[in-house]
Amino acid sequence: MQVIKEFNFVDELALNQHQRILRPATRAIVTKGQNILLLHTERYRDYSLPGGGVDHGESLQQALIRELTEETGAREIDNITPYGLIREFRANYKQADQLIEMLSYCFTCTIDDEFDQQNLEDYEIANGMTVHWVDINKAIAYNKQTMAESDKKGISIVRETFLLEHIAANLLNPSCG
Rank of each mutant, 00 (worst) to 15 (best):
T81W: 12
T81N: 07
P82D: 12
P82L: 13
P82A: 15
Y83C: 08
Y83F: 12
G84A: 05
G84L: 06
G84C: 11
L85E: 04
L85V: 07
I86V: 10
I86W: 05
I86K: 05
R87L: 07
R87A: 08
R87H: 03
R87S: 06
R87V: 05
R87K: 12
E88T: 15
F89K: 12
R90Y: 15
R90S: 14
R90F: 14
R90C: 14
A91Y: 13
A91P: 03
N92I: 01
N92C: 04
N92A: 04
Y93E: 08
Y93R: 10
K94Y: 04
K94H: 04
Q95E: 10
Q95L: 10
Q98L: 15
Q98N: 14
Q98V: 09
L99N: 03
I100E: 02
E101W: 06
E101D: 10
M102F: 05
M102Y: 07
L103P: 01
S104R: 06
Y105V: 04
Y105G: 12
C106I: 05
C106M: 10
C106P: 01
F107W: 02
F107L: 04
T108D: 06
T108I: 02
T108R: 12
T108Q: 11
T108L: 15
C109L: 13
C109P: 00
T110Y: 07
T110C: 09
I111A: 11
I111C: 04
I111K: 06
D112G: 00
D112H: 08
D113C: 11
D113M: 11
D113Y: 12
E114Q: 10
F115C: 00
F115G: 08
F115M: 11
F115I: 00
D116A: 14
D116P: 09
D116G: 08
D116W: 15
Q117L: 14
Q117S: 08
Q117G: 07
Q117Y: 13
Q118Y: 09
Q118V: 07
Q118D: 01
N119R: 13
N119H: 15
N119F: 10
N119D: 10
L120F: 09
L120H: 05
E121C: 00
D122I: 08
D122S: 14
D122H: 12
D122F: 02
Y123S: 06
E124Y: 01
E124Q: 10
E124G: 01
E124S: 07
I125N: 03
I125D: 15
A126E: 11
A126I: 10
N127L: 00
N127C: 07
N127W: 14
G128W: 10
G128A: 10
G128C: 09
M129S: 05
T130K: 08
T130E: 15
V131F: 11
H132E: 02
W133N: 02
W133D: 05
W133Q: 02
W133S: 04
V134Q: 02
V134K: 06
V134E: 08
V134G: 07
D135C: 08
I136L: 02
N137V: 05
N137F: 11
N137K: 10
K138F: 13
K138I: 15
K138N: 13
A139I: 03
I140V: 15
I140K: 12
I140E: 03
I140C: 04
A141Y: 05
A141P: 00
Y142H: 06
Y142E: 03
Y142L: 04
